[in-house]
Nucleic acid binder design. Structure first.
Lengths: 197, 197
DNA sequence: TAAATAATGAACACCATGTTCAGTAACTAA
DNA sequence: TTAGTTACTGAACATGGTGTTCATTATTTA
């Protein structure tokens, strides 16, 4: 990629992230972005179709990283499949936590919808692979949707509760995961890796 | 209230509902609304601050009705508290089902955020009153948030799955309600009033 | 019937959007 | 080093929705 293009893109994302920490997404104008990034108006439009496009690209890149296959992830088979799933979720939380500054802002307006949509799409892939227990007679995809939505909502909650670590949040979520509530009775002690405070 | 005002408001809401069935909320302009409602531009702005205001008022009125105290609701004490709660939820679903046409549309864009916020606010009041079982050591308000979010998401799902009745949806939701999963084991048969297909 | 209240609609200023284009700067490959 | 390509610039412009103003007309109320 041309060095000039990369420079421009980087400047735009940097400006966008900064602006998100200062005001809500709907209040940010294209003018704000190009002023902050110090680029020409036409340059912005040669890179992005519009402000919404920029948001989409940002969200996609966040989750691409958060759910990236990192070395050794697939090899977590000294643990059970369940532990591998929990590790994957915790890994994602670490990434999201790094961007708390502007993620909080994105979540607190219309743009939250966009963010959550991307988030849930990735989570559906993750939980779709999970072959853990599902209560008697309940469709698996309905159970998956429950895990997806509730994990996403848990993260939304976490963004305003910085005192919890990623491990703690995954542990708390896990206790609400459908199927786990019942199996926990049969195998006590399996529910959480780290106790909640 | 002045008959003229009432007439204008009604025309605006009617036009808004119709337009929502035709296109997404972001694509609807104030011009669309006043053309359809056949009122003057300044008239619209004397009733509503902006398009967003109209959406807020519409959402509030929907849930005011859906969660209204209707006669005999408080007297459901021939059933348990649990049955009263389920009846309240089912009642709300009947109301929401009546407006499926435009509710579906509201939910499928930015405006869904607004709708869900109002919905969850009302649900927090409802589930906050619920004193049912909560798993060992989990904060009650966290459990409440789970019921709130998952019921709201279930409705979102229901909007695209017309084949289920309100009773069936409440029953399905109930099986995922935290606390219920465990108590169901102790008291089998209490989980659902109507079996799912 | 008079006073108060509401609706009208054209006209207006405003502002963000997205496009165009001629000119300049930076890369690339021969 | 040079020629050719690609990217950035920034001013200018057309567009379109927004929200306000105000003199006029219609309706309600007392």
């Amino acid at each position: 990629m041309d060095r000039r293009q990369a420079k421009t893109r980087k400047a735009v994302f940097q400006a966008f992230a900064e602006l998100l920490e200062e005001k809500g997404y709907p209040d940010i104008t294209v003018q704000d972005i190009i002023d902050r990034a110090d680029i020409g108006r036409s340059t912005f439009y040669s890179h992005f179709e519009a402000k919404e496009d920029l948001l989409n690209v940002l969200c996609e890149s966040i989750f691409e990283h958060a759910f990236s296959k990192h070395p050794g992830k697939e090899d977590t088979h000294d643990f059970s499949e369940k532990e591998g799933l929990k590790a994957e979720l915790t890994h994602a939380l670490y990434h999201l936590g790094e961007h708390r500054g502007y993620v909080k802002s994105i979540l607190s307006s219309e743009s939250g919808d966009v963010f959550m949509r991307y988030f849930k799409n990735h989570l559906r892939e993750v939980f779709g692979r999970d072959s853990g227990p599902v209560p008697d007679g309940i469709p698996r995809d309905y159970a998956v949707e429950h895990s997806v939505c509730w994990f996403a909502e848990t993260v939304r909650w976490w963004m305003d509760n910085e005192e919890y670590s990623p491990e703690e949040v995954t542990g708390l979520f896990w206790r609400y995961k459908v199927g786990e509530a019942e199996s926990r009775r049969a195998h006590p002690g399996n529910g959480m890796k780290n106790g909640m405070p």
